[in-house]
């Protein structure tokens, strides 16, 4: 199985693509002391891949097949719809206050709940000041397909650790989940490029929401546009664009527009 997956790393998979084990041998020979090399190969299926029966892996997303040593495989898709996963940090929008919980939109199929006690320093007497429409940076502690997702704004030791209500004066926008994951990788080139360009604050939610704030409205807009457009650029094209922005002549971009139609990373 692994060899047939390995052969397609970097290729585009479509929903319904099936990988079959080269040999579908189900009987175990007791006389043979050596285990079948094919049986010992285990494969870890990441997002987009699913085991179906004994030998078949079906991809349920379209995207590029990625591989990580020793045996992890997943499909890197351009998905924008967020599916809550436990432990991920997301940006949510408070939609309602009901009793002792806030309802928070995190972009998933269902609204998440956030207890008012799950803020730093909050007690029954001392309620946090959260209004409907506010942004919260929170972490998912329950994310189960059969249950309502639940958020907290504190870590296990009761500290905020960067989480909580935020967002005055910045701009919130949505990018694909893949871009957020890329931005969150350590020493990311895009973030490094931005660092050199403007000083700005950046909040990245794993649910595809990004919040930026720079010194002025103008700069905030530029950073937001840069992040959005960097999704479809190659590593070579990005520094050119960043340099242009640094020089302050974005208008010339029109000429070289077609170059960017090349494939993304």
């Amino acid at each position: 199985m692994e060899s047939c997956l390995k052969g397609r790393v970097g290729e585009v998979l479509l929903p319904g693509d099936v990988f079959r084990l080269a040999r579908t041998e189900t009987t175990i020979s007791l006389s043979d002391p050596e285990p079948d090399p094919l049986r010992t190969q285990k494969v870890v299926c990441g997002p987009g891949l699913r085991r179906d029966g004994d030998h078949v892996v079906v991809s349920c997303k379209s995207g590029v097949l990625k591989h990580k040593q020793p045996n992890m495989y997943w499909v890197d898709s351009q998905q924008r719809r967020y599916v809550p996963a436990k432990g991920e940090s997301v940006i949510g929008i408070i939609t309602a206050k009901s009793g002792d919980v806030f309802k928070v939109d995190v972009g998933g199929s269902e609204q998440a709940s956030l207890s008012y006690l799950a803020f730093e320093g909050a007690t029954k007497r001392n309620r946090p000041n959260v209004q409907v429409g506010d942004l919260v940076y929170a972490q998912l502690i329950i994310a189960n397909k059969d249950m309502e997702p639940e958020l907290v704004c504190i870590d296990s030791s009761g500290r905020a650790n960067g989480m909580g209500v935020f967002g005055a004066g910045g701009l919130l926008f949505k990018v694909s989940l893949g871009l957020v994951r890329r931005l969150l990788t350590p020493q990311n080139e895009i973030v490094k490029g931005l660092e050199k360009l403007f000083p700005c604050e950046l909040v990245l939610g794993m649910n595809g929401r990004v919040w930026v704030r720079a010194a002025t409205v103008q700069k905030t807009l530029i950073v937001a546009n840069l992040l959005e457009s960097s999704e479809n650029m190659t590593a070579q094209q990005r520094p050119i664009l960043f340099k242009r922005v640094a020089d302050g002549n974005l208008q010339i971009k029109k000429e070289g527009g077609r170059e960017r139609d090349m494939e993304s990373e």
Partner: peptide, 16 residues
């Protein structure tokens, strides 16, 4: 899938 494009947006850079 691998070919994604973003339309060019000319951003006004004349501000401060």
């Amino acid at each position: 899938i691998t070919v994604n494009t973003t339309d060019d947006t000319s951003v006004d850079m004349t501000g401060p």
